[in-house]
């Protein structure tokens, strides 16, 4: 439809302070920073375009009410049970609703051809992202650089992102891998540029992130969109499934696959431990940690939960824990 989605989440501590006086103290820092950012600088692409807000966690649902910005949010009502037919059907209806909204806004019609070409564009990006992951697993690309590349997704047009990351990979692929080190898996609440505090501390403690399941990083790409029939309805159904049924965000209630997915990556890539990041106030990931920790430990994996926000003052405390974790 000629539109490009922009991600609004922010990792900036400074702008977060702008919203501190009119937001709950224990609000998720990511949304607090996003609120500050919106006050500081309105979305750049097109002010008349709606914000599309999937109703994931409670903070997200109440965000518009707190931020009180224009234009109004368009809520995509996310069924929190996603393994059953009922939830999937409701989600598909939501997606059709979104299409109608965008068609009204742009005066353009979404058709099978444009949908197919968009799926193709994302397929290219997905391949490049797969290669990015591969180079990190091979220790050619340090965890922090991987995160920079992943974070830049949805900040510019998808074609430009794909091309630039591809160029970067061409150069990086010729570099020798870093020596076999102390690799960890990073899970939990999202990490958004420029708040790379935890990544830097992990590196300072002599470890590197070999894999993650953050929704701002590896989990952006759940895999290719597979459609059985290339009709308009067929592609729409496949798209809806890809980003709902296949999604392993902890805001879903029936989410056993998430733990299995983490266990698979640990096993396949010989990663010995999980650093679990919880942004203060982020309930879905905090709650999940209580289930994940015993499950991982019972299989012999190490687990370290770090609850923090965007401030720097707890860095030394976190570093102490990470250094010890690296020696277990």
């Amino acid at each position: 439809m000629g539109l490009h989605p922009l991600r609004l989440g922010s990792g900036c501590f400074c702008v977060g302070r702008l919203s501190a006086s009119h937001s709950p103290v224990l609000m998720c820092p990511l949304l607090k920073a996003t609120m500050g950012l919106l006050q500081f600088q309105a979305p750049t692409q097109n002010d008349t375009m709606p914000w599309v807000v999937p109703t994931t966690c409670d903070w997200v649902v109440k965000f518009q009410e707190l931020a009180n910005t224009q234009p109004e949010a368009y809520f995509l009502e996310l069924p929190h049970l996603h393994r059953g037919e009922k939830g999937q059907q409701r989600w598909l209806e939501e997606i059709y609703g979104l299409v109608r909204l965008l068609e009204n806004q742009t005066g353009r019609k979404l058709n099978r051809k444009t949908l197919l070409s968009s799926v193709q564009i994302f397929m290219h990006a997905w391949k490049v992202f797969g290669r990015l992951i591969e180079l990190r697993r091979k220790r050619v690309l340090a965890g922090v650089w991987f995160m920079v590349a992943a974070n830049s997704f949805l900040l510019d047009s998808i074609e430009i992102w794909t091309e630039r990351v591809h160029q970067m990979l061409e150069t990086v692929a010729t570099h020798p891998p870093a020596p076999e080190g102390n690799g960890v898996f990073l899970a939990g609440s999202p990490i958004i540029f420029p708040n790379f505090k935890l990544l830097h501390l992990i590196e300072t403690a002599g470890m590197d992130v070999y894999g993650d399941d953050l929704c701002t990083s590896e989990r952006i790409w759940p895999g290719a969109v597979c459609y059985e029939e290339p009709s308009y309805r067929g592609i729409m159904r496949a798209l809806a499934e890809r980003y709902h049924k296949a999604c392993i965000c902890p805001t879903f209630a029936d989410n056993e696959r998430r733990i299995n997915s983490i266990l698979n990556t640990l096993q396949q890539h010989h990663i010995r431990g999980v650093v679990y990041h919880v942004l203060k106030g982020c309930h879905p990931f905090d709650i999940e940690s209580f289930n994940l920790e015993p499950r991982l430990k019972s299989r012999g994996y190490h687990f370290l939960k770090i609850e923090t926000d965007y401030v720097q003052e707890d860095s030394q405390n976190i570093l102490t824990r990470l250094e010890a974790f690296g020696r277990i």
Binding site: K297, H302, I306, E307, T308, E313, D314, N317, T320, R321, A324, R327, I328
Partner: peptide
């Protein structure tokens, strides 16, 4: 001085696990 730790050791003195307060 500014933290509390609980540390678990194995019978050979190997560090098995630990918990530490946050800030």
């Amino acid at each position: 001085g500014q933290d509390v730790k609980v540390i678990r050791l194995s019978a050979t003195g190997k560090l098995l696990d630990f918990k530490m307060n946050d800030k």
